[in-house]
Design a binder for these strands. Structure first.
Lengths: 400, 400
DNA sequence: ATCATTTAATTAATAAAACTACGAAAGTCC
DNA sequence: GGACTTTCGTAGTTTTATTAATTAAATGAT
C-alpha cells in the first residue's frame, strides 16, 4: 500500500473510531490525547463523523477513563450512534437463520430480533431461504441499512464473498447467499467467517485484550486469531482452523474429507460419540454427558481428546507468540473441571507458560458485536484499496 | 500508530527500498510504476537515498523485469549500495562466532570473513568473547558501520536486546552481548532471533514468496513466519517456536524445561539418539545415519518423529492460513526421501491441501541476507516509533 | 459574587508530502 | 535527420496535520 496524503486521513479516522469503540464514550480532547493526535485534528474528524451520523453526542455522560478530571470545561462526550440501526446482522446457523438490526454502538446483548428455520428439504433451499428473508424484511422497522453482514461457519472467501466449504450447511456452498441478500435489501453485503465474527465480538467487549486465539466448539471446531487488535488476515481464505489438525491415532472420518481431525473428537457430536463409546449403557445425550462429568470429573476418554486439541492450540500459540485462549461454545457448557483440565493441558504445551502466565478463559459467544465490528471496519472505513492507488498508474500503463 | 505528514514519507521510502530489494536493479520510473506512486515522488526519494549512499547508480545495467522496453530514453538503473560494507553481521553459534562485513545489496553467498571459537571454559566467557571481538575488529578493513547485527538462537527480546533463554549457549543469557559489541564498534547494535534472520534471508532471495513458515532443524528446532512479506511480530518475545510443542507419548526431557518437545526428536542430537535406540549396534554418527537412511528409506522411528513435527507445523499452517513451509538445516542434509516423507506428512495435516497446493521446499540457510534485511528495516528506516508521536502530546500532559 | 485557574473546542497560519502538468533529455525506429 | 517514446526534473496545487492563539465553560478561592 502506498501512502499519499489523500489516504492517511482515513487511517486516522479509523484509529479514532477504534479508540471510541474501546472507550465507549469519550470527548474530542480525550480521543486526541489517547491517540496522540492534535486536538484540531481529532475535532475535525469528529465533526465529519457527526455529520455522517456515525457518531452522536451524549447528554448526561461524564468523562470516564483514567483521565477523568473534574476541573476545567467539561468535554462534550461522544459515542457511536446508538439511536438507529445501521447494520442488519444475519447469522446462518446449521438449521436456523437469525437476524438482528444493529446500531453502531452498544450491542452487548445477543438479542436476535428475527429467526426462521431452514427448509433443507426444499427443491431449491437457497431460493426458499431468500423467500424467508423477504418475509422478515417486511417486518423490519427499517428498510435502509448501511450494510448487511452475514456470518457463516466453514471456509469462506470473505473478499470474494463466496462460501467455499461448509460441511454442515452444504446447500450454502453452491448458492450465492450474498447476491440473494442483495436482492432483498439495497445495501452492501459483507460476508464473515463465523469464528472471526466471534473473535471480533470478544474484542469489542474486551478492548484491552488485543492478542488472543478464540477457540469455538460447537457443531464444528474452529477458531480465529486477533493479533494486535486486528483479525489476523491471511493470504488463503482459510485461517484459525485448528479443528482440522489431525490427531495421531484418531481414525474418525471428518466432514472435511480428512481422517482424525480434532473436530471429530470435540464437536458436540464427536463428544457424544466418544461418550457413547465409553459408556455404552447410557443414553448419549448432552444432559447425560453433563451429569456424568459433573459426577466423575474429566474421564480418560475426554482427557485424551482435550490433550490432543490442547497440543494443536499450543502449537499455534507457540508459533504466533500468543498467551491467551478464549474458549466459547459447548465446552463452556460442561462442568468447570473440563475447562480447568483443558487450560492445564494448553499451559503444558505452551512455551510461554515456562516464562509467564498463559491464560485460558471461557466466554459466551458474542456475534452481534462482532458483526458490527466487521461492518464498521469494512464499510464505514474502506481502509485498503491498493487497486485504486496502484491501478491508477500501473494498470493504465499495462493496458496501454 | 498515528499518521501525520511527517511520518508518511518514511513509509513510502520503506516501500521503495523493499521494492528495490525485490527487483535488484530498477529505475526511478520503474519503481514508481511498481509502487503506484508518481514519478516525482519516486525520484525525490531516490535522490535522497543516493545522497545518503544507500542507493547507487549502476552503469552498464539494462532494465529487467516485465516492463523491459527498448524504446525511449533509457532509465538510469539503481541498486542498493554494494560498493562498501554497511553492516557488520555477527552470528553467535553454539561453539563458534562468525562475522562478515555486509553491503546493502547482493549478499547471495554465505561467505563469513572471520570466525572464532568460544572459550566456554573461561571464567568469564562473555569477557573472553568480547576480547575476541576486539581481535577481529583490528583485522577489518572498515571501522565504521551503519550498524552491527547479531543473530542468536533461542528466545530473544529483540526490542530490549536481551537474550532471555538459550539452552545451548547458556553463558549468553547473563551477558549483555549487545553492550559488549557496542564497546568494540561505535554503531547501533541490533539483536535478531536466528530463525527470523533465516526467514528474512529466504525472503530476500525469493521476494515473490511473501507468506511462509520457515522451519529450521539443527542443534535446536525452531522456526519463523513471514506473513505478507514481513516477519510476523509478536506481543511476546517468543514466536515461531513449533519445536517446543509437546508430542504426546514422547517423554524425553527438553532443554527448555518441558518434557516431550518436538525438538527432542528432530534436533541433530535427538535424531542421533533415536537412531542409536533403533540400531544399538551401529555407531551413532551423522554419517552412519545418512548411510542407513539412504539404504533403508524412512524407518518407522524417524517416520513417527516426522509425523509429530508435521502435526505441529500443520496446526500452525491451519491457524495462520499459510501454504508454504521452507525447511532448512539438518533435514535437508539427509537423503531426499526424508524430506519427501515430511512434505507428505505436512500435507496430510494441512487443511489447505484439501483445496489446493501445499508446498514444502528445502533451502540452504541464508543468514547474511537476513541480517542485512534486518539492518535495513530497523536502522535505515526506523518505521514505527509510536512513542515519538504519542509522547509529544500525551506524555507531556501527564507529566504536567 | 467575582476572578483566577483549568480544561475543551475552535480558528488561523504553517509545514510536509504527494499529486498533476509540463518540458527538457536521451535514446530507438523509419 | 525527424518522428516517436520513455525518463527525469521542475513548478504549482491539494490534502492533511501541526503549532499557536483565541474563545468557551466549568471549578474553587477570596
Amino acid at each position: 500500500m502506498i501512502f499519499h496524503p489523500a489516504r492517511i486521513g482515513l487511517l486516522n479516522k479509523r484509529a479514532l473510531i477504534r479508540q471510541l469503540r474501546k472507550d465507549g464514550v469519550a470527548s474530542r480532547a480525550g480521543l486526541a490525547r489517547a491517540l496522540g493526535m492534535s486536538q484540531p485534528t481529532a475535532g475535525k474528524i469528529v465533526d465529519e463523523l457527526l455529520t455522517q451520523e456515525i457518531l452522536e453526542e451524549v447528554e448526561g455522560a461524564e468523562a470516564n477513563g483514567d483521565h477523568a478530571t473534574r476541573l476545567g470545561r467539561p468535554g462534550r462526550q461522544l459515542q457511536l450512534n446508538r439511536s438507529q440501526p445501521s447494520f442488519l446482522g444475519i447469522q446462518l446457523g446449521v438449521s436456523e437463520t437469525r437476524l438482528a438490526e444493529l446500531p453502531l454502538g452498544a450491542c452487548d446483548e445477543n438479542d436476535w430480533h428475527f429467526s426462521f428455520h431452514h427448509d433443507a428439504a426444499a427443491a431449491n433451499p437457497a431460493a426458499a431461504w431468500e423467500k424467508q428473508l423477504r418475509n422478515v424484511a417486511k417486518q423490519l422497522r427499517s428498510r435502509k441499512f448501511l450494510g448487511v453482514v452475514l456470518s457463516v461457519p466453514g471456509i469462506v472467501d470473505e473478499s470474494a464473498r463466496r462460501i467455499l466449504f461448509s460441511p454442515n450447511i452444504h446447500w450454502s456452498e453452491s448458492a450465492d447467499l450474498c447476491a440473494a441478500i442483495g436482492k432483498v435489501w439495497d445495501a452492501p453485503v459483507l460476508l464473515v467467517q463465523e469464528e472471526r465474527a466471534l473473535a471480533l465480538g470478544y474484542l469489542t467487549l474486551h478492548p484491552d485484550q488485543e492478542d488472543f486465539l478464540l477457540a469455538d466448539f460447537g457443531e464444528g471446531v474452529g477458531g480465529a486469531v486477533i493479533f494486535g487488535g486486528k483479525p489476523l488476515m491471511h493470504p488463503l481464505p482459510i485461517s484459525g482452523e485448528f479443528g482440522h489438525t489431525p490427531v495421531l491415532g484418531n481414525h474418525r472420518r471428518c466432514g472435511c474429507g480428512a481422517v482424525g481431525c480434532v473436530e471429530t473428537l470435540l464437536s458436540t457430536s464427536g463428544l457424544l460419540k466418544s461418550f457413547a463409546a465409553a459408556h455404552p449403557r447410557q443414553t448419549a445425550s448432552w444432559a447425560a454427558l453433563q451429569k456424568q462429568l459433573a459426577e466423575n470429573g474429566v474421564e480418560p476418554w475426554l482427557a485424551q481428546s482435550l490433550d490432543a486439541a490442547a497440543v494443536a492450540l499450543a502449537a499455534a500459540l507457540n508459533v504466533l507468540g500468543l498467551r491467551r485462549v478464549v474458549v466459547t461454545g459447548n465446552l463452556t457448557d460442561l462442568p468447570p473441571t473440563v475447562l480447568e483440565y483443558f487450560s492445564g493441558a494448553i499451559r503444558g504445551g505452551a512455551m510461554w507458560a515456562r516464562f509467564g502466565e498463559v491464560e485460558c478463559v471461557s466466554a459466551p459467544r458474542n456475534r452481534t458485536a462482532g458483526l458490527v465490528a466487521v461492518g464498521i471496519d469494512r464499510l464505514i472505513l474502506p481502509e485498503a484499496e491498493p487497486k485504486l492507488s496502484r491501478g491508477k498508474n500501473a494498470a493504465t500503463k499495462l493496458v496501454k
